[in-house]
Design a protein around this nucleic acid. Structure first.
Lengths: 205, 205
DNA sequence: AACAATAACGAACAACTGTTAGATTTTCAT
DNA sequence: ATGAAAATCTAACAGTTGTTCGTTATTGTT
């Protein structure tokens, strides 16, 4: 196995490219068929190499899954943080929340990265701990935005912020289960709807 | 294999009891470890019979899964409908919606029946079609409540009801992923929070 | 008590799994 | 062009899976 860190000279080695391709197709296959129904042989076939060759790049099947999860959560986190930053530190916490929701949806829907991969309870224990921590960190972004909205005195009282946060994350996560890329809805429109519910509810005042 | 319809005389045959026991333990195991990580041998062991004996009651492993899904969605549907009926046909559609949310959460959390079992896209195609129809029927209950609320002129405009419905179902479904039965929250309290968000949002007027 | 129907056993199966290791090819600096 | 290093191939392995089937035990009716 090799480390995935590219050679010191700027060049991308052949192994770097193969490794990246493996992660790419594995992500798609995991999402499409569920982590358990994807064998190393299928990943290999999709990446146009033989099954045994995978073990030159990854020490085990679990390592592939770990790499996929790492890149997935990490990538989403980066884009969400970028969107928040772009909204501007001086903007309302609600504007930043809307930006975060949109970025999250755009990333997860674009990268086929969603609930399917997040059924973390069934991961091997070693992976699970690390991934759950990553997941908690990610959720903390949204928790922080809610707290800031509260501090800016934008929120009404009488609700449990942590429960609302988890309900929101659930709604968000589940989108990948019903979203149809060929349908009329854009990720941003879904984010608008969700933000609308959070802002006003759906009931007449 | 046998049909599961109990003998004409009121008696429950031994096979009826075994079959029921198999479905029961399979439901728990599927939920606990994920559908894919549960082998027929584990189900058999949990039901205190041998693996081969399962095929006297079910023609295949998929048939067990089908039975579990059938009873799960069917059971939830029954309890939700009952809760709506109990709320009274003359009550506000919002009151009935609140009752439906509570019943759904109580059932799914009590019966360990949740998203884990609902990763329907990865089901064998034959099962998937039937189960997706059942799922659509179930979602239609909530769609109907929203429509009735609209007819009763309780809802503000400016949102897409079908998107809001799916976001709500997502929040609902995902609860089973984070809910801790030993924690302080009751299913009813979660339903209250969700209903609160739907009603008023979380932002100051 | 005897007998047929019912229910469960238990050993075997073929297919598929992740993984290994030695042989083979490709890559690239010299 | 040559040789070493890097990358891939190929065949095999041990274990697990769903399933089958002939045998055995249990049940309920006469």
């Amino acid at each position: 196995m090799q480390t995935g860190v590219q050679a010191a000279n700027g060049k991308l080695t052949k192994a770097d490219k193969t490794r990246a391709r493996l992660i790419e197709v594995a992500t798609r296959l995991f999402q499409e068929h569920g982590t358990d129904h994807v064998t190393v042989r299928r990943i290999a076939a999709a990446a146009k190499i033989e099954a045994g060759s995978i073990y030159y790049h990854f020490s085990s099947r679990d390592e592939i899954l770990r790499a996929v999860l790492e890149r997935g959560v990490g990538g989403a986190r980066e884009e969400v943080m970028a969107a928040i930053a772009e909204a501007g530190a001086d903007s309302s916490a609600l504007v930043r929340l809307r930006a975060a929701l949109g970025a999250h949806l755009k990333y997860t829907l674009r990268h086929h990265f969603s609930s399917r991969l997040k059924a973390i309870r069934r991961l091997p224990k070693r992976l699970r701990d690390h991934h759950m921590q990553q997941e908690r960190d990610y959720a903390a972004i949204f928790a922080r935005l809610l707290r800031e909205a509260q501090r800016e005195d934008l929120l009404r009282g009488g609700f449990d912020p942590s429960v609302v946060r988890m309900l929101t994350m659930g709604a968000l996560t589940w989108v990948a289960e019903w979203y149809d890329p060929k349908g009329p809805l854009t990720p941003d429109e879904i984010a608008d709807e969700l933000m609308g519910v959070l802002t006003n509810g759906i009931v007449k005042p």
